[in-house]
Write a protein that binds this DNA or RNA. Structure first.
Lengths: 224, 224, 224, 224
DNA sequence: GATGAATGAGGATTCATTCAT
DNA sequence: TATGAATGAATCCTCATTCAT
């Protein structure tokens, strides 16, 4: 894994990036992973708001103090988990949301984008929890909304690539709406199983296809 | 309190068993309304999970004990508030989701249905909060999901009326998806103001129009 | 990492068993000094009770474990710091509290004693913090009261020298009172700056002069 | 007791002084007193900084929640206790610090002022604890320094009465010094018992007499 | 009916200290 | 030596709920 802590195994003095490079030991790295895993489980079980740091520590099999050695508070855990999942996503299917699919016809592009994304959510249900954030209203994505924001940026990027002539305002609206439609569909998908789930997957694709197709038409009018 | 036992120990001859209870009920109703109003405010401020019964009581200007005289627990408050809002909705724009709009062309029907619904949500933001429920995943609508369920029933009903030939499975899927699309759009709408809000309203209508139109086509093939 | 452990696994034969331990001690001394400096800073910032060993370690730029390698507990740090400051004091102005000033007329003696002491406190505010000890009542000076005790001994000594005929009881009372007066004045002095501070310094000297002069009179009745 | 809550026993609507008169019930009033008593005990035992709200609740024989129904945090408890003690003092020996003693010769005035004050502190050792505040440095008297401030005001007042020609600056200095001398002496007094205590009481009076007498001389030069 | 009092377990977070590496 | 990891009890404080008045 490329972007890890290179501090401890690097023999050269790490030129102390900030103050104290916080020489993280291997065990600590593992602990962080365990804690994030535990956090994922607890967030899924109880939702972000109702999740308690003590419960996360318990789930991870460590004492509360240990948790706080790695994360200053609950929010930081959520952010950390979001980052981890985002990284995980980037590593495993990162290309799904990028260039290579941009040129495909819409239906195949939707498959190429949505299928891995849905699969990833099914395997990492905490991703969906973080995507939705706490039920607290107000600046939804402010703090723990890393995931939402990252996805939104990707969607906006894709739209910008595919529909370069769309004015920025419209692009924002479209991106927001697209992401929200996806989140809505995902909720439905994840609350069903088997063939029902498949039906909702198909339906979501239908929704998005019908929503987005006219935009593409407008941009690249199929000579008629 | 409506369904409590104030009848048996009443020392007065139980004549006019009508009038007094009614008085009490009247005051009780007012209390309940006050409490629900307070709950609406607090739910909007903090979300369902983070809302505290003490905060609701404080907001209502009563003591915690009083609150528990009318509602056995926090959940019941949410349910009660949902019912109240649903009733309020039924009384004020109830027809919007019913028969009379069924016959309209899709775009006008969407206006007829969505505009009042959005307006209602803007005026009663707690409605949206309840529609979404706590961020706790799992059996989403189980307990406090009255609002979601009621709306879902209405949507399903409308679809059944308008598309009587749709097989029940598909109808459920369509209804669920429609409602979720609406919720997604509503989130966007309510987190913006002014012209941005209007843009999202228009966009939501676009989404729904594009999603639903083909279904109608299928049903009533415009003889062509 | 500069000062790591290249000492013990060093393959050179352990002759010169003298020099190496001295090295270690030297490094240890430095560490201790760093830790005490950090402790001074933290004690001043938060007071003794609220100071945390972790904060001291952080301030010193070392890990908690390292701190506990040199001090068995928080109290020991305070004691160590007290000792260090006392030594520092002895080295820099030690004579101030001793013989040479004993013979001066009271007002000049007060200048000779108080000015350096006040200056020392201003430069080493932790000295004052330790002098006062934790706000915990009871056996005030028991544990960390090294500073208080040392000063008290000096004061008593000076009094004994200057007023050899004072009965021991009275001497104790006088010494205690004198020291407490000084601490009280010091508090005032250190919580002001500039000319206000000067005013309090003058006032403290006045207080002490008026308090002590009659004692001297009694002892050395100005030939009348 | 004149200045109590007159809200609950008054039959007339209490014209809601602020928002909600917080109709305190008798039991609550008692609880507050118990809690303050417990706080006094714990503050004396552990000092302000080390005192814990849970310990206070335990001492009072109630649950932590109960404590927090009456006080929002530890500081508020200290303030409340300070107020209570100040009131108690005002009621019992209030006149000691006021007019009637102003005219006495200094030695008798010191007796009249200090004896009750010392007795009060001996009976209410928490008073001394609050007078000294937390060992945290900085704005000492800011928050819980009610007691210190109240006393300081009284001292300044007395000085202003007795020495009306003293310039304000000097008055402040004198008042501050006087109060600090008293606090210093009190510490000594309270950490001793029996005849030793008496000796320190006498010594404190000596200190203050010698400190203050010249000021009075200056003001009312005994025609000589 | 209404109130405020009371609870106590549980929330987040910190801390002095110990331990394996 | 030095480190960071780990602890777990203790910190302050909140909450849903019950109870006596």
């Amino acid at each position: 894994m490329p972007e890890k802590q290179q501090t401890e195994e690097s023999p050269t003095p790490p030129q102390r990036a900030e103050e104290r490079p916080r020489r993280r030991q291997a065990r600590g790295e593992r602990r962080i992973a365990e804690l994030l895993g535990a956090a994922a489980a607890v967030f899924c079980r109880s939702g972000y708001t109702a999740a308690s740091t003590n419960a996360i520590a318990r789930e991870a099999g460590v004492s509360p103090g240990t948790l706080y050695q790695y994360f200053p508070n609950k929010e930081a855990i959520a952010v950390g988990l979001g980052d981890q999942l985002l990284e995980h996503w980037a590593r495993s299917h990162g290309q799904a949301l990028t260039s290579e699919n941009i040129g495909l016809p819409l239906d195949r592009m939707l498959d190429a984008v949505l299928d891995p994304l849905i699969a990833f959510n099914v395997e990492n249900p905490a991703f969906a929890v973080l995507m939705h954030g706490p039920d607290t209203p107000g600046p939804i994505a402010d703090e723990i909304g890393t995931v939402h924001c990252a996805l939104l940026a990707r969607v906006e990027e894709m739209i910008a690539t595919r529909l370069p002539d769309l004015p920025p305002d419209e692009r924002t609206v479209t991106a927001n709406m697209t992401l929200h439609l996806f989140k809505a569909g995902l909720t439905l998908i994840m609350s069903h199983e088997g063939s029902e789930r498949d039906a909702y997957i198909a339906e979501l694709k239908t929704v998005m296809h019908r929503y987005l197709e006219p935009l593409l038409e407008r941009e690249h009018p199929v000579g008629r």
